[in-house]
């Protein structure tokens, strides 16, 4: 299974990649914003996208909308990892097409549970 982690913070990308590695997922690609994320997606095979919300160039919500408009990623599982934890934020993300939502800070157990809930069986 190959993941794409999209976050403008190199620290958060590293934490997410370390967490995925700990859970046994070794294939992870990175992007620093939504635009780079779309580039990665068009040139690589991705199974699951993990994205931040607040990013320069293209934020997470616009990125998710863009993914849902692309045939290749219209049904791809997308997880959002963010500090935007208000109910309205979650509703906006779900409307944009996110499958699940992880609020920072998170534990490895929460991360595992959310990943397993959206992985295609």
């Amino acid at each position: 299974m190959r993941f794409l982690v999209v976050d403008d913070s190199s620290t958060m990308r590293r934490i997410i990649i370390n967490t995925l590695n700990k859970l046994g997922y070794q294939e992870v690609l990175e992007a620093a914003n939504g635009r780079e994320g779309i580039d990665r997606l068009t040139t690589s095979e991705i199974d699951l996208v993990i994205t931040d919300w607040n990013m320069p160039e293209m934020n997470g919500i616009d990125f998710i909308r863009a993914l849902r408009a692309i045939d290749k990623s219209k049904d791809m599982p997308i997880l959002m990892v963010t500090t935007n934890a208000a109910k309205d934020d979650i509703v906006e993300a779900l409307r944009a097409g996110v499958n699940s939502y992880i609020i920072k800070p998170f534990t490895t157990d929460t991360f595992k549970e959310k990943i397993e809930a959206v992985i295609p069986r």
């Binding site: 963010t82 500090t83 935007n84 934890a85 208000a86 609020i103 920072k104 800070p105």
Partner: peptide, 9 residues
């Protein structure tokens, strides 16, 4: 950011 986000939540 996470401290402020946690405070906000």
């Amino acid at each position: 950011n996470m401290i402020a986000g946690g405070f906000r939540l």
